[in-house]
Simulated scan of single mutants.
Amino acid sequence: MRRIYHRFPQSIDLDFELARPFRDVLACIARMHDTHTTVRGADGLVKERVLIQITDGRTQFLNLDALQPLSEKVSEMADFRVDLQRTLLTPEKRLPVSESVFFLRIVDKGPVTECYVAKENRLGDLDAMDLRRLLKGACE
């Protein structure tokens, strides 16, 4: 079933292809959900977390965990909401650094998958190229 968000932005920030079948890309996205990495930044350790939601009923998003297994419930096209959060880890507390939210549409094109990315707002320090790099890394 196609899972399309009726308010997906008409103006996109980035359009690219992944040389993977649609079902493989769905599996990559499912593996990325609710994961985090820790990197050393200029101010100390920074935790980077990825949260992913999928559209439901054309008007809202639901947690990706609620729709498992994903490959059996999604076909042809799907819209996602990807939340990339960065938190500074200090000995005393955790300080939110930034939050970047993207809309991601993937479309089945046979042996390749077409991806469209649009940033929800201009807040956050990441852009569509960062999401592309993250998605390509997860699929390789």
Rank of each mutant, 00 (worst) to 15 (best):
V50D: 12
I52D: 00
Q53M: 15
I54Q: 06
I54C: 07
T55D: 14
T55A: 15
L62T: 11
L62S: 04
L62G: 09
L64P: 14
D65R: 08
Q68I: 01
Q68T: 09
P69T: 15
S71C: 08
K73R: 14
V74R: 07
S75K: 09
M77C: 05
M77T: 06
D79H: 05
F80H: 06
F80M: 01
V82S: 04
V82A: 08
D83C: 06
T87F: 03
T90P: 00
E92A: 15
K93F: 09
L95A: 10
V97M: 15
S98Y: 08
S100P: 07
V101I: 04
F103R: 06
F103A: 08
I106T: 01
I106A: 01
D108G: 04
K109A: 14
P111M: 11
V112W: 01
V112G: 00
T113H: 00
T113R: 00
E114G: 13
C115L: 09
C115T: 13
Y116Q: 12
A118F: 13
K119H: 09
E120R: 04
L123A: 14
L126C: 00
D127M: 06
A128H: 07
D130E: 00
R132G: 02
R132I: 06
L134T: 12
L135N: 11
G137R: 01
A138K: 08
E140A: 07
E140Y: 03
